[in-house]
Write a protein that binds this DNA or RNA. Structure first.
Lengths: 342, 342
DNA sequence: GCAGTCGATGTAATCGATTCCACGAGGAGG
DNA sequence: CCTCCTCGTGGAATCGATTACATCGACTGC
């Protein structure tokens, strides 16, 4: 593969001049520029990004370490992150942590070794020393969706508080009183927070959230299935199961179906995270939709602000309730009803 | 960030010795090795992968250019590719082409500039000159899922022929005679091939595939919706719609639902690509399942064989029919029935 | 007409690693 | 006791770019 030296030789100039042409440095004669450009064309020359990065100490690359790519929510997040980054002249390397702290560390280390310009993380656990060190050492970093408390890193996330309150009001209006939740891992902020907000919202209606109605999941489908089976085995099973993410809702659906029960007559179901398929499940699933694309874009902008020396801000965007039929038959009574497709 | 020089100074040896220790070169004294390791520990030194790549001309990185990350099939493919690559000591950079040739070229160029060791591509179109040049120039390359005919690059893909024949037999046995297909882009091998195999399978039952029953889609949900609307507007609409991928099936479902029609009573639906949600749609959707994970792993192995000087082989794995309820009510009659969840 | 400025260009240092080559010490063999 | 290897080590070249500095010619202004 042709190097800058070959181009210089072909054009009959020095490598410095070639570099100047390539970097649009002003003081290059029209003649030299033309000869260099012609040589570049002839040789099919492309600058070696590795060499360039070594010299300039910038890779124009962002790292994105995501909890689980197979989760449609994170897939969409990754997509919007890549789009915005590309628009701003950066590439993205995605690392899939699969909800495993060791894998998360593997990817963080790998990305750091590659000298990425900045790191976007949705942490799997409460505080890997590696990540904390990186943050302290000054690696530009932004948390997205989830975060680690007590670290001075901007956070871009959705606020589900009012949407969860709307959901509980909706469920209460439909006559449900025994509400259960499949929680995410306690090590994650979203795992903890959604339970707490749910509990508080229940309290506002005079309802409790007994321990038996709080199942511990891990944001994966299998845990949703397991927890739901536990709920169904109770002497007094809940009337509603609220899954803290879409994959656990899928698992819950599996478990309910395996028992031959029907949603919502036998048991109601709602989920955090809205995805396209929820419109077509049997029945369509009531869910809390996050502004996923906007979160991804905001996170990238914050990170690049930080990289380029501006001061990044944390961003919190509201999630909203999308009522469908999985919690009861007459959503029309509810003012926040939204049965649209997308 | 500490460099190899700092480590050398701290350990009281030369950079050559540090490098030897790091690369497990045999001729280093136990004493020197211990001092270097201690210095590495003290300084928290990590080798700069950029510098290393420049010198060794290897990045231990594979590029994966995928047609559409939001498509669950490709998400799963990407995941298995990353897993296998990681197991073999490589990282993966994913580029999402979004079914757009210009974006595909952008990513290929970007990956080539970064001097990735090899490229895995599921081409969006029939032959970007950039990619053909790269292949000719000797860039290790493997096609996965889709390929470009006439290029000397190994292909790893699923063969849907027998599964599509099984599907047509299933549909025929259920009494369906007017079968339509939502095709993928003619520029892709999978787009063309699935239609041809479908047509041939119909012929074996004495059925034709009229032009009116061949809709042109682009593997995205919206096109599935549009084509299906066209089918439903026909004086004699088809009895079955077969979508050539899962997203177009989703669009078809949207269109059918918008008309207030029911599957399978009013119209039957089947899809190429099986995904978890198909179990829970209303009704569960009959689909052709590809061995996605195995494809991803085989593709990585072929590519790394090529990179490391061995001779890679093309791989074709069979897809299989998974019968559910979207084509008619009594799948039990069919020997290939499979109603399992996963 | 000469000093000073500016524009175009080249030379060489540099980034952080790997690796070839040279060198000295020490042991084996004659 | 001398020669020849082997082993451990360091010096320095190298990968392909960027960029500070030096140089040189031409032009400007006094």
């Amino acid at each position: 593969m042709a190097s800058i030296k070959d181009v210089a030789a072909e054009a009959g100039v020095s490598v410095a001049t070639v570099s100047r042409v390539l970097n649009e440095h002003p003081s290059v004669s029209a003649d030299a520029r033309a000869r260099v450009l012609a040589a570049v064309e002839v040789l099919g020359y492309r600058p070696n990004a590795v060499a360039r990065s070594l010299r300039t100490d910038q890779t124009h690359t962002l790292g994105l370490v995501i909890s689980d790519v197979m989760n449609p929510y994170f897939t969409e997040l990754a997509r919007s992150v890549e789009e915005e980054a590309r628009a701003l002249g950066y590439s993205v390397i995605i690392g899939n942590a699969d909800e495993r702290p060791d894998l998360q560390d593997h990817h963080v280390r790998n990305l750091l070794d590659r000298r990425i310009d900045g790191l976007l993380v949705s942490p799997t656990d409460g505080g890997s020393p590696l990540m904390l060190d990186a943050a302290r050492a000054g690696t530009p970093m932004v948390f997205v969706d989830r975060w680690i408390p007590g670290v001075d890193v901007p956070v871009v996330r959705a606020d589900g508080q009012s949407a969860i309150r709307d959901l509980v009001a909706h469920l209460h209006a439909l006559g449900h009183r025994r509400l259960a939740i499949i929680a995410g891992p306690a090590a994650t902020t979203t795992g903890r927070e959604r339970v707490e907000v749910f509990r508080t919202a229940l309290a506002a209606h005079g309802l409790e959230l007994p321990d038996a109605y709080t199942g511990q999941g891990d944001f994966q489908a299998e845990s949703g299935r397991r927890v739901t089976e536990g709920f169904l085995d109770l002497a007094e099973p809940p009337e509603v199961v609220f899954a803290a993410d879409n994959l656990m809702a899928l698992g819950a659906l599996d478990a309910i179906r395996a028992r031959g029960l029907r949603v919502p007559c036998d048991i109601a179901l709602a989920a955090f995270d809205d995805i396209r398929w929820f419109v077509h499940t049997d029945p369509p699933i009531t869910a809390i939709a996050q502004p996923t694309g906007e979160l991804g874009r905001a996170a990238v902008r914050a990170l690049i602000d930080r990289i380029e020396g501006r001061t990044p801000r944390s961003v919190t965007l509201p999630a909203r309730l999308v009522v469908r039929r999985s919690c009861g038959e007459d959503p029309a009574e509810n003012p926040v009803t939204n049965r649209s497709t997308s």
